[in-house]
């Protein structure tokens, strides 16, 4: 079973969610499948923000949607406080859903254009009634105020709000069920630059105020670093590197992480700009390369990279793991 190893999993009572060897495939006809996620393992502490960063097609959104079962899972386990989410079906799955809420990328598409925003926000309460004993109906207004939407606009419909305001409404909807965990799938990438910071700050505030655990998915390296405690870098369905946010950006070991950090318009000071010169195209996820999936574009690749898949290994003494046969040596203590 080709996985990238369980090294990054932590044996700790604070763990809220553990993903092991998650695999997701999508059929694309004629018997072919897209290997969207191919064996990824990680865990999230309660109260932690885990960022997942990578380019389009790396499987980061698929991981997020798999956790709340918006995709079918081919193999692997998703363990949330003793609940095996991957095996739940029907009513059992529905019962657990309020615990794990989601913020979507497109704030406008994520709100029903025909419903008043008060109804949108209180939908969770309407579904669950007093079952969960969470936000009582009359506290919806408090929730609206908390996310920065004046309750007097509760009777308006989504098209009367800007993108940033719609995203706040989406956050309020998710918060209404008192979730333990919030999965944010590119929550600011559709917003204007001047509004992004508002929403990022709001997420931080809400996390603190309501004791949330966040899973934050983005393609934007700076945004992910800003909100995350720990970050996973993904490439073509695999995790390349997992670690503490500051440590990972400070001492990136995987050549792909370095390439990403060097490719952004204002490259991170911790990498050499020439690290960004990766050649070629993303290989097809239908027939991913054997061995290390980055081998077709990696300047460091040797024979072993084409035959043997690198396993996750730990940087001694750090909360930092990478899967590479030829990790970039970094002089610690720059």
């Amino acid at each position: 079973m080709a996985g990238s190893g369980h090294a990054p999993l932590r044996d700790d009572p604070n763990v809220l969610l553990t993903i092991q060897d998650l695999e997701v495939e999508f059929p694309v006809g004629k018997g072919a499948v897209v290997h969207a996620v191919s064996g990824i393992s990680f865990d999230v502490f309660e109260g932690e923000t885990l960022g997942i960063v990578g380019e389009s097609g790396c499987g980061k959104s698929t991981v997020a949607k798999s956790i709340i079962r918006l995709n079918d899972i081919k193999a692997g386990s998703v363990d949330y406080q003793g609940h095996k989410l991957a095996d739940l079906e029907g009513e059992a799955l529905r019962r657990i859903r309020p615990d794990l809420q989601m913020i979507f990328q497109d704030p406008i598409s994520s709100l029903n254009p025909r419903r008043k925003i008060r109804d949108v926000i209180s939908e969770g309460l309407a579904v669950w009634g007093d079952d969960r004993g969470s936000w009582p109906q009359d506290r919806i207004e408090e929730l609206m105020t908390a996310v920065g939407i004046d309750p007097k606009y509760g009777d308006r419909r989504p098209h009367q709000f800007s993108g940033g305001q719609c995203q706040r409404i989406g956050i309020a909807r998710a918060l209404a069920l008192d979730p333990k965990m919030m999965i944010c799938d590119e929550p600011v990438s559709a917003l204007d630059v001047s509004v992004q910071a508002q929403v990022l700050n709001l997420l931080e505030d809400m996390k603190e105020r309501y004791g949330l655990t966040l899973l934050f998915i983005s393609h934007d390296l700076s945004v992910v670093k800003n909100v995350s405690d720990r970050i996973i870098v993904m490439y073509l369905g695999k995790a390349c590197e997992i670690g503490n946010a500051d440590e990972l950006y400070e001492h990136p070991r995987h050549p792909y992480t370095r390439a990403l950090l060097a490719s952004i318009p204002e490259p991170a000071p911790t990498v050499d700009p020439s690290d960004g010169d990766i050649e070629g195209e993303l290989p097809s996820p239908i027939t991913p390369p054997a061995g290390c999936r980055f081998n077709t574009r990696c300047g460091h690749a040797s024979d072993i990279c084409f035959t043997e898949e690198p396993q996750m290994q730990r940087v001694p003494g750090e909360d930092h793991y990478f899967a590479c046969h030829h990790p970039v040596e970094v002089s610690v203590g720059v």
Binding site: A197, E204, E266
Partner: peptide
Amino acid sequence: SIPRIDQPSHTRL
């Protein structure tokens, strides 16, 4: 307002 890559994580924006 823009998060910067050289700031430590959780820098208030």
